[in-house]
């Protein structure tokens, strides 16, 4: 089992890196790009024998306490077989 964790800045937080990527894309002629937010992606391998409920609980705790900073970031995750 694996977990995919996505961490991104809260929408209320300025993301100057995303803005810079957007202006680069616009500059290349991708005029359809109206906004870019840059985030992080974690792929976490989980040992066999961990129940999906327990895995969900642990991933949620580690995302909240370690992978994301709740002051400025939000996260979501998914479990895959």
């Amino acid at each position: 089992m694996k977990a995919r964790v996505f961490v991104s800045f809260k929408t209320t937080v300025l993301d100057p890196q995303g803005q810079t990527v957007q202006s680069a894309l616009n500059g290349l002629g991708y005029h359809g790009v109206a906004g870019v937010r840059q985030g992080k992606y974690f792929e976490i391998a989980l040992s066999d024998g961990l129940s999906p409920e327990e895995a969900r609980r642990q991933i949620d705790a580690m995302a909240r306490d370690v992978l994301a900073n709740p002051v400025i970031e939000e996260y979501r995750f998914e479990l895959i077989e």
């Binding site: 937080v13 300025l14 100057p16 890196q17 810079t20 900073n69 002051v71 400025i72």
Partner: peptide, 11 residues
């Protein structure tokens, strides 16, 4: 301490 420190506005 409260808050966070993020990438400089001008990058």
């Amino acid at each position: 301490l409260p808050g966070a420190l993020m990438r400089n506005a001008g990058l």
